[in-house]
């Protein structure tokens, strides 16, 4: 029987049925890095912070972490929405323009 099979170059092969591996718990989906969207960066004043975790629970991007005795922002993914600053009951999070930081986000690094 003649073969009607399409030869697909290795680099063009995709996972069969488009079924992909899930990221690990508390991990990240590196195919969609979103830190480059940010215009205002959340900056935590650790003196004021009471570790109440409001910013943590309300973050749509899992971009605020409880790191030992401190809250920390995962800048690689934080889109800069500002919800964390808004829900903070003690005003410990300030939103600072990216351009004020050395190496701050100044443009979209890739399309999405």
């Amino acid at each position: 029987m003649k073969s009607y099979e399409v030869k697909i170059a290795k680099e063009k092969l995709l996972p069969e049925a488009g079924i992909v591996k899930a990221p690990s718990p508390n991990g990240e989906q590196e195919s969609m890095i979103t830190g480059c969207w940010r215009v205002l960066r959340p900056v935590i004043d650790h003196e004021k912070c009471t570790m109440c975790r409001s910013c943590w629970i309300f973050c749509p991007d899992q971009a605020i972490e409880v790191k030992g005795e401190e809250m920390a922002v995962k800048l690689k993914y934080c889109k800069g929405c500002g919800i964390c600053a808004n829900v903070c009951p003690v005003g410990a999070i300030e939103r600072v323009p990216e351009l004020d930081f050395e190496g701050g986000v100044v443009r979209l690094e890739k399309l999405f």
Binding site: P23, P25, E28, Q29, D61, C81, F112
Partner: peptide, 10 residues
Amino acid sequence: VSGHRTCAGC
């Protein structure tokens, strides 16, 4: 987890 294209503040 982190790494999705939902709007900021979704």
